[in-house]
Design a protein around this nucleic acid. Structure first.
Lengths: 196, 196
DNA sequence: ACCTGAACACCGTTCAAGT
DNA sequence: ACCTGAACACCGTTCAAGT
């Protein structure tokens, strides 16, 4: 097989992986389609077959980000001995994501002018569903009233996202963020549990 | 006086006002220094005397955003009859800001590669101080222990910022956001007050 | 002290043409 | 079906020159 086949075959995935790395190292401003193409060894017009424009690439990045974060939260909560620990583990996982991928998180919650695409919306719902699953387990464990769980899930989601946003934007340090998420979830449990 | 004096005299303020409007109507991607210069009736090199580069303009916008949001929160809380209402009013003001200025809020909490500038940091602290003032009043009213207030202020800040982030990114609707902030603050009070 | 205007290097996007 | 490469319009940034 030739060194550089006409059909790259893998271009879409390569572009996304490289874009994620650039995002991590140089932020959104450092992300250029032409540079990604150069580094992938294709012409600057080639990405167009996979991403109609720069925004479509960014959407795909956000989408992957949501799926990954949802998975990490799911994993973190799965190994916890009880609901309180599951919440803390989920919060910690969210914070870790913000620390490691601030620019990606920023992209996932970017204020776009247009309505979010279907694909991004679906991926974002997966993150919300991961939080909802943990909360449902809390209901089954008798921690919350079933009638409160939807609103409580939203409050929890806002709290963790706010903590992550403060970290990603460097308004607080990583270490402050770790303390904050712990306090926030402890307080959430204190306020939300039926048993107080 | 001539129609277009050599010294614009007002260029910095004009650029900032126009930039804020563009941000509101067309988002960050629609914001170009050259276009701002054109609309201000100056050459494309003129803004450089006031903003060394595009990022300096964005920093100035974020700075003004923080000052304005801090003021609006301060005002909102000032007219409340008690601490609980002050918290709710502050939360509502934050949500209103996110609804009216999603792109500006996004800019204020953007994940930049470089550390935030001194000016932006100071302005951001003003927002945090506005929240801290409200919480201090709660301590004086006997709602919280004085030893908890710093950590509680951080939790509150994260909660409102998370709600605002979900709204600005269109992950939830404005109406969901209004319900959420009410629930979140009610739950915050339930979990944080010493009297439960 | 502030603004002009040419120059430079770099983009995103489009599209006819190639394989 | 996928990629090339020229073309276009637009940037941000720099800087000598003007007032």
């Amino acid at each position: 097989m030739p060194d550089r086949p006409f059909h790259h075959g893998n271009l879409r995935a390569v572009l996304l992986d490289q874009a994620e790395a650039v995002l991590r190292e140089r932020g959104l401003d450092g992300l250029s389609l032409r540079e990604l193409a150069r580094e992938a060894g294709v012409s600057h017009g080639a990405p167009r077959k996979h991403f109609i424009d720069r925004n479509a690439l960014l959407d795909a990045l956000a989408e992957r980000g949501f799926v990954r974060l949802a998975d990490e939260i799911h994993q973190a909560a799965a190994h916890a001995p009880d609901h309180a620990h599951a919440l803390q583990a989920a919060g910690s996982a969210y914070v870790r994501f913000a620390v490691k991928e601030p620019a990606l998180l920023d992209l996932m919650f970017a204020a776009k002018v247009d309505a979010p695409s279907e694909a991004v919306r679906t991926a974002a719902e997966r993150l919300f569903a991961a939080m909802a699953d943990i909360m449902s387990a809390g209901v089954e464990a008798g921690v919350y009233d079933a009638s409160d769980v939807d609103r409580l899930t939203l409050v929890l989601s806002a709290t963790v996202q706010g903590t992550a946003s403060l970290i990603a934007s460097r308004r607080i340090t990583t270490s402050q963020g770790e303390g904050l998420i712990k306090d926030a979830i402890t307080l959430f449990l204190a306020g939300a549990s039926t048993a107080h």
